[in-house]
Simulated assay, not measured.
Amino acid sequence: MSRRLAFFGSPAWAVPVLEALTRDHEIALVVTQPDRPRGRGLKLAPSAVGAAAAEMGLPVAKPRRLRRDPEIADRLRNLRLDAAVVAAYGQIIPPSLLEIPRYGFLNIHPSLLPRYRGAAPVNWALINDEPETGVSIMRLDEGMDTGPLFAQERTPIGPHETAPELADRLRDLGVEMLQNVLAHLEDWETRPQQGEPSYAPLLGKEDGRIRWADPARAVYARHRGVQPWPGSWFTYGNRRVKALKLRPAGGAGAPGEVLEVGPRTVRVAAGEGTVELVTVQPEGKRPMPAADWARGRGLRPGERLA
């Protein structure tokens, strides 16, 4: 059944959600973040969703603050919406808007709510080395990801999946679930979230620092979870070095101790096991094999990385 919808989203991750909805439903309005300076010239440019919506000829609104925009509520009321769909919009939807669509606001959240409420659920599930995660289709309420659930599905996390890869896979699963919910809104009953909540705040630069005292498996889990930003990094000689590619390995030593500068990798001791640095990027330089960087800096076994 076709629905009359508003879509709230901003980054490139949300564009496939919008594209899928346009194939089966009427998108009466796309709401996205305002244009921002981008690129070398810092010219104003639309969000990825804003650009995609414009190409599809869809009406677009770009309120700076939903709470302070008196026109957006009137505009939504006049659209006579069945529902609104939210996919990584970037602003909290105020209570004054939540009850406007007939069936409320539906949100695709890439976690098993109430686990990992917040802005970075995929990243923290990986950082914490969770064996599985999932997708929740939720009706928004006034809280932070606290609304009742329409549907929820579990999926194992691959041993080498990175945050962008997992996020895209969860999004695609979420689109299928969302389409099913939209087709049966009249008959679908929501259920409250159950269990102990946990939270997934936005990542900061320090979250990418390699914790050499952690087990090698945990270092690798964090590495996968902090892609593409802030990325994994360590310091040597008071200079930051990005670890673009690394992997866990066997062996033992004092955490952060360089054990071997091999022909292709640099092996560093972790709290349990070791980490092989494969590709690095020193500050102000291009990516390079870790072994080349180490030989260029005269790095020797026994030295410590921080």
Rank of each mutant, 00 (worst) to 15 (best):
A254L: 15
L140A: 11
W124C: 04
R169M: 06
P301Y: 06
A87L: 04
L178Q: 09
D129T: 10
A269E: 03
S198N: 06
L185C: 06
A83C: 02
A270R: 09
M288W: 06
F7W: 00
N238E: 13
D69Q: 02
G57M: 06
S47E: 03
V181F: 11
E189V: 14
R171D: 01
E165D: 08
W212C: 01
D207T: 07
G204Q: 12
R23G: 09
R139M: 11
R65Q: 12
T155Y: 09
R222M: 01
R217C: 00
G195E: 09
F105I: 12
P301R: 01
A84I: 03
V85S: 00
V266M: 03
I127Y: 00
P282K: 06
R102K: 15
V49A: 07
P16H: 10
D35L: 09
R264Y: 08
G174W: 11
V31P: 02
E165A: 15
F7Y: 04
D214I: 06
G271V: 03
A6D: 00
L182K: 07
L170G: 02
T155G: 13
A216V: 01
M1V: 10
G104I: 05
Y199K: 06
A61W: 04
A83P: 00
V219D: 08
A73R: 15
G271L: 08
H160C: 11
R23K: 15
L76F: 06
L170P: 06
T235Q: 15
F8C: 11
P59D: 09
A221T: 06
V268K: 04
M138V: 13
R222Q: 07
E186V: 08
G158W: 04
G204A: 12
K205F: 13
D214G: 04
R40K: 13
E26Q: 13
D74V: 05
F105D: 01
Y116A: 00
V122N: 10
D187I: 14
L29E: 01
